[in-house]
């Protein structure tokens, strides 16, 4: 794998409001500003109204900062960090379907999987599905190892990242309507604001 390319990747993490159309706004921003992104993942957090995005870009720190300042301008984007200056962990997940129709390939695959954090999660007479979780680099190494046995299908989730230590990336934001309804109830004496 092109090691230099991997090294040039920057990670931007964004906390966003979990509302319809937010992903569209972000995708539209990237398209409009011609930001070239490598992967984008989005998922829920422990707060129901907050989603978290990890964006990987092949670029220098200046470019990543440009993306971050533009992202921050979106009203639904709560907080943005460029992760590369702080220690962080990252994970990518790949599902790889490989040919599995002779003893040789079965042995090779089992042997390769033993050396990686990979599991065979589905086996059939002709193909098997491998699940592999790890850093982007190690997944790419793994893919190159199994490639000769014959990859027939593959999907990756894209990288998710989290900073290490106690520098917590979180927000206390509460859904606005919930807040206002509580305020309205408090006014009419039917409830209270926490």
């Amino acid at each position: 794998m092109d090691e230099a390319k991997t090294e040039n990747k920057m990670t931007v993490v964004a906390l966003v409001e979990n509302e319809p159309g937010v992903l569209n706004r972000i995708a539209s921003l990237f398209r409009r500003r011609a930001f070239n992104i490598d992967s984008l993942t989005v998922g829920r957090t422990h707060r129901p109204h907050i989603s978290r995005m990890t964006i990987r870009v092949v670029a220098g720190p200046e470019y990543a900062r440009k993306i971050a300042t533009n992202l921050q301008k979106l009203v639904n984007v709560i907080d943005v960090r460029v992760l590369d200056n702080e220690p962080h962990v990252e994970r990518d997940l790949a599902l790889i379907k490989v040919r599995n129709d002779d003893a040789d390939s079965r042995n090779t695959i089992t042997e390769i999987c033993d050396r990686y954090p990979a599991r065979i999660i589905d086996v059939g007479p002709h193909v098997a599905i491998i699940e592999m979780v790890g850093t982007e680099t190690i997944i790419e190494e793994f893919i190159e190892e199994v490639r000769p046995t014959g990859i027939v299908e593959m999907i990756r989730t894209g990288v998710v990242s989290m900073g290490r230590g106690t520098r917590i990336h979180d927000t206390k934001f509460i859904n606005r309507r919930a807040l206002l309804e509580a305020a309205a109830k408090a006014r009419t004496g039917n409830g209270r604001i926490d």
Binding site: V75, N76, V77, A183, R187
Partner: peptide
């Protein structure tokens, strides 16, 4: 619906 204009200052988490 009941019309209540929020009298508090607008606080937008991402703005």
């Amino acid at each position: 619906t009941e019309f209540v204009y929020p009298d508090s200052e607008i606080v937008l988490p991402g703005y």
